[in-house]
Write a protein that binds this DNA or RNA. Structure first.
Lengths: 255, 255
DNA sequence: CAGGAGCGTTGCAACAACTGCAACGTCCAT
DNA sequence: ATGGACGTTGCAGTTGTTGCAACGCTCCTG
């Protein structure tokens, strides 16, 4: 809508790929060097880009700080965190909290496993949307049309032999998840890692977030992990209750 | 430099404080609602802001993804990480990596303590610049004039009785750190937490990053923590070697 | 050591894009 | 039913943005 801002913001993903100099930025933006310079300067003043010693530009520190601050202000996160921590204390495994936003699903909180073997994930990182248990829950709640549209547009990378292979399979899986009210990822992302997940709902019943417990095969089998399902669902429901305002927020013992 | 972009970017920190509606944004920007609307729309198209169900705006998912991507492209981080992990395996304590950027010092990597008691910190979070050991190292390396300018502009919050109280004290501390080539924070940020830190230098000898080991009193005393100093310094030197290209990057055993 | 290429930077005039206004639509509360 | 609050849109004025050309600088080369 605003050309100038549009151009300026287009610089960010460009720099995310790696540092670039003025000429490169101007070229890829399709504008004159002087224009690119002024845009970069403005971004610089706001700390979004940083000029390293070799004069090239890269993304700046304030970007991290902003993402950080925004993350900490998410109310679901704040409400959910103590429950995630308590769940982690009980079962010892990695606990994740994720939300859906315009085509992406991303982790917004994580409590690390107490076992030495940990899985790779990072808060803020978009999740493997076609296989992750939390992603299935979040997408399964979309209205039919949207769900189909999203499914068609996705890529279906075969992380493992058990990854969701294509859109029809994904839609079937979403349908199943929608009906049963919980989801799993059994080695669909990493061969040896399984997850069970449950939805967190707002006052209107819509899924606003999803949480999961993940553990590698070497620690517990998939079947053993599934025995945690009731606990995970209870925790999610408790969080739903607080989030939707039904439960007065107190030191609620759960389960 | 560019008014339009400047205004648009000013929206981001504003939204970082919490969600806001169109009117609030327009007011705080000092522009007409319609102008604010168009700026927000542009930010929205780029995924930097998100419109939640109550129509209010908040920071968007792409911001996290960008911060994430930028983080992973930092070469110091990539080079340093295995060394930080190895150091953590040896001593068991929390290990941090931090860089300085335009007045802020922020953590860009962290390996968690293996002890149950952990300290609060988060990757991407700006550090307590007046007391943190890594911050002292990074600022101590600035040229005299800049160092003084920075010191004058800072706030000196008294986190504890041992926090750096004011600019002169800070400058003295920086001078000391500069001479000895390492730094500590003994309860200056949190009463019971101590850190030892060492600088990582680029090919030109300038400090490009700093790393630290932190542990609470209840696990090890300050004196015990200080016995780790040689190990920390060796690790930092090894990373310096790789970063500056002096050491061919291989599975370098350190110590 | 001089010459040239490459890059970032600045002042300026032309113009496109941005701004603020006012009017409209919608939703919610009274 | 009615008023108010809020988001949204088309429009005309003009401000802010653009691309150009020229300059300064550094680095490399003959």
């Amino acid at each position: 809508m605003s050309q100038t801002v549009d151009r300026a913001l287009s610089i960010l993903p460009l720099l995310a790929e790696g540092p670039a100099d003025l000429g490169q930025v101007a070229d890829r933006l399709g504008v004159h060097k002087s224009t690119a310079l002024r845009l970069l300067r403005t971004l610089h003043e706001h700390g979004l880009v940083y000029r390293q010693s070799d004069q090239r530009y890269r993304l700046g520190a304030r970007l991290f700080a902003l993402a950080q601050e925004a993350m900490e202000n998410l109310d679901i996160r704040e409400i959910a965190h103590p429950h995630l921590a308590r769940l982690n204390e009980r079962c010892g495994h990695t606990v994740h909290l994720a939300v859906h936003e315009e085509g992406e699903v991303l982790y917004i909180d994580k409590v690390e496993s107490r076992y030495p073997v940990r899985m790779y994930s990072r808060i803020g990182k978009p999740v493997a949307i076609t296989v992750a248990a939390v992603a299935k829950l979040l997408l399964a709640d979309l209205p039919e049309g949207e769900r189909r549209a999203v499914a068609e547009k996705l890529d279906y990378p075969l992380y493992t032999a058990r990854s969701t292979p294509n859109a029809p399979a994904f839609l079937r899986e979403l349908e199943k998840v929608r009906e049963q009210g919980w989801a799993t990822d059994l080695g669909g992302h990493e061969e040896s890692i399984n997850c069970v997940a449950a939805p967190i709902r707002g006052a209107d019943g819509r899924v606003v977030a999803a949480m999961s417990v993940s553990a590698p095969n070497v620690v517990v089998t998939a079947d053993e992990l599934l025995t945690l399902l009731p606990l995970v669902r209870r925790t999610a429901d408790t969080i739903s209750g607080e989030y939707s305002g039904r439960t007065p927020i107190k030191e609620a013992p759960e389960g």
